[in-house]
Amino acid sequence: MIVYGVALLSACLILGMLIGEVLGIALAVEANVGGVGIAMLFLVLTSNSDKFKALVEGASGMGIQFWSAMYIPIVVAMAARQNVVAAFEGGMLAVVAGVAAVVVSFALVPVISKIGRSDIGTEENQ
């Protein structure tokens, strides 16, 4: 049943969000800490486990794959509802701060990726 997969996906998201909210309160932060990431971990764990096979294989799995495939259209809709006008009305300071943060962060990607690679050794042939 397709809905089993959709229900599993929903349960993962709700559980992850709940944990994220609790983490936020525990850390005295006004935000959900990693809710989506935790939900993703749940989905990875259940889809790699034998116990949940009935919920992730066959038609049930298609219920999850459908939403995975809807990801890009949803992102396009997300782009279309951004407050782009406000972004540019912030003036030069906002533009410079935003652009500089992105440029520096881009530059750090290869640096920190390298840290990761030396940590796990050279088992992979690059």
Partner: peptide
């Protein structure tokens, strides 16, 4: 919807 679809990509 964004979060729902993002989680689904972890499948």
């Amino acid at each position: 919807m964004r979060d729902f679809a993002i989680v689904a990509t972890a499948f």
